[in-house]
Structure formats: C-alpha cells, structure tokens
Amino acid sequence: MGCGADEVVAALRAAAVVVAEHREELVRLDRAIGDGDHGENLHRGFSAVVSKLDGSAPATPGAVLKLAATTLISTVGGAAGPLYGTAFLRAATAVGDAPELDAALVAGALRAALEGVVARGKAVVGDKTMVDALTPAVTAAEDVAEGGVDVAAVLAAAAGAAEEGARSTEPLVARKGRASYLGERSAGHLDPGAWSTSLLLRSFAGGAR
C-alpha cells in the first residue's frame, strides 16, 4: 500500500486537529521551562497549513510537504517555525517528485527531517529538545522499513519511539533553547518541542491508516 498526495494531506489535517486538541497542554509545558508560546504558535501554523490545503491541492506528496514547510516557516514563529519548517522542507526534498511514498521513502523523509533539525538547531540527543523524540523515531522507522512493511507500520513505529523519546526528556537539564537559561530548574518537565514532535508523528500514524 502506498501513500499519495491525498494521504499526506489527510495526515497534515489530522496533525492540525491533534495540535488544536493539545494546544493548552503545549502552552502549559512551554510555560514551565520556555516562553509559553509553543502551543499557540503550532496551532496558528497548522491552522494556516489547513487553510492553504483548502485553497490548493498539490499533486505529489513532496509538493504537499513543501507547502506545509513554507507555511510553517512564515506563520509559526519562535524556534519551532524554523525547526519544523526545515524538517518539512528537507522531507519534501528527500521524497522528490515521487507520486507515492513507500515505507523506505517515508523512513528516508524522516531521516532527512532529523538532519535538517539538527543542522538548524545544533542540538544533539540529551539536550532536551525535539531531537530527543525525532532521533529514536527515525531509527525505529528505518528498522521496520527494512522489513518490508507498509507506510502505516513505519509511522506507527516512529510514533511509538518518539513518545518514549519525548518522555525521556523529563529528567534532563536543557542545553538548548530558552529552557537552557533555567539550568537545573529545567529538569522535571517534559520538553514541549519533543512532546509536539511525538504528537505530530502520532497524528501522522493515525492519519495514514
């Protein structure tokens, strides 16, 4: 089973719903150790993505991802705008103009997204950032993609690993982003960026089924 432009659009719409549902939670997490705007920013960004998708229907998965990227960059603000924007942009480039995504392409897109986030934010695993969720997600996606499963299984594996990775940020002391100014006081809180990464991958996994 493949995954065409319509399925990618459906995944982004599902993401917008999940972000709206979790807006308050993300605001609360970000208020604890950041500037408190993460939930609001992502909600604004994904609402704008849905509006763009309502107005146009890109023909390929890559074109859909690119539309999401440029929209997120110009609407999200904060660190999440450049980071998620870069992630989607790299993913779009990785899948090229393929009409349908298979498991290997999805795993490759996730790998490209991670590399983009690392290049943009200069964070490594353990810094208490979205990299802590995305890195195990990519590894899990690549592992199952090798076994010849479908896209839904790749995304499910990625989502599961991302959630575990996000939860692992709770005891960490932040070394990147606004939370790093708090030093030891940043420990004991989930990282909002890692948590939103986990939520997004979970929504993609749901939308791809």
């Binding site: 904060g78 705008g81 450049p82 990147k176 982003g177």
Partner: peptide
Amino acid sequence: DLGSARMVAEM
C-alpha cells in the same frame, strides 16, 4: 538576540 532569532536569521 536569542536562539530562535538566529535560526530565523539563518533561514
């Protein structure tokens, strides 16, 4: 000034 401004500037 601060981190995300750097990222936006670099983009």
